[in-house]
Amino acid sequence: MSAVKKAWTKSNKKEKIYQATLFPEQKDFDAALTAISTMKICTPAIVADRCKVGLSVAKKCIAIALSKGMIAPVSISQSVRVYTTTTKKEDKVDDKKKK
């Protein structure tokens, strides 16, 4: 009887994603801001995954969207920051109904 080595299964490797540096191009910010405006719930991890950027760039994009009023904080703790989109359209509709 010959000793048979066990053939270990090959693990699936993730594809390497190009991660933008700390100073990405303007088109990366614009793409991230449009993606953020369509999200119902927004966290840095979700933005980094969908826009294929690093986490630090995602945090900067969220800070820009927050300063522009595109998103509003839902829950901010030390470990998790959750944001949601603001509904400016509903505010305008409410103003028209009052008149």
Score class of each variant (00 low, 15 high):
37 S>Y: 03
3 A>F: 12
53 V>K: 01
80 V>F: 09
10 K>Y: 07
92 K>N: 12
48 A>D: 01
51 C>V: 01
65 A>W: 00
8 W>G: 11
32 A>P: 02
27 K>L: 08
80 V>Q: 12
40 K>C: 05
3 A>N: 14
15 E>C: 09
54 G>V: 05
87 T>W: 06
74 V>W: 03
44 P>W: 02
37 S>V: 04
64 I>D: 05
75 S>T: 09
13 K>G: 07
72 A>W: 05
3 A>G: 11
63 A>Y: 06
28 D>G: 05
31 A>N: 08
26 Q>R: 12
68 K>I: 13
39 M>F: 02
68 K>N: 15
96 K>R: 11
26 Q>A: 13
33 L>I: 02
17 I>G: 08
22 L>Y: 13
51 C>D: 02
74 V>E: 03
40 K>Q: 09
43 T>W: 00
2 S>A: 07
10 K>S: 09
21 T>Q: 15
81 R>E: 04
44 P>Q: 02
65 A>Q: 02
44 P>K: 02
14 K>M: 13
77 S>Y: 04
43 T>P: 00
49 D>H: 07
37 S>A: 13
91 D>A: 09
86 T>Q: 06
14 K>G: 11
27 K>N: 15
17 I>A: 10
36 I>H: 01
62 I>F: 00
28 D>W: 05
56 S>N: 15
81 R>G: 03
37 S>T: 04
38 T>M: 08
80 V>N: 10
27 K>I: 10
95 D>K: 09
35 A>E: 09
33 L>E: 01
87 T>I: 12
66 L>E: 05
20 A>F: 12
70 M>F: 04
35 A>Y: 06
42 C>W: 00
98 K>Y: 08
98 K>D: 06
21 T>P: 15
31 A>W: 07
82 V>R: 02
30 D>M: 08
82 V>Y: 02
8 W>Q: 13
31 A>Y: 14
56 S>W: 10
90 E>R: 10
83 Y>M: 02
69 G>N: 06
49 D>L: 09
59 K>Y: 08
99 K>Y: 06
59 K>W: 07
27 K>M: 08
99 K>T: 09
67 S>R: 14
19 Q>K: 15
7 A>Q: 12
62 I>G: 01
45 A>F: 06
10 K>E: 10
55 L>A: 07
95 D>S: 10
11 S>N: 13
25 E>M: 11
3 A>I: 13
43 T>N: 00
8 W>E: 12
54 G>T: 10
39 M>P: 01
75 S>C: 08
54 G>F: 05
64 I>V: 15
41 I>M: 07
49 D>V: 05
89 K>F: 11
36 I>S: 00
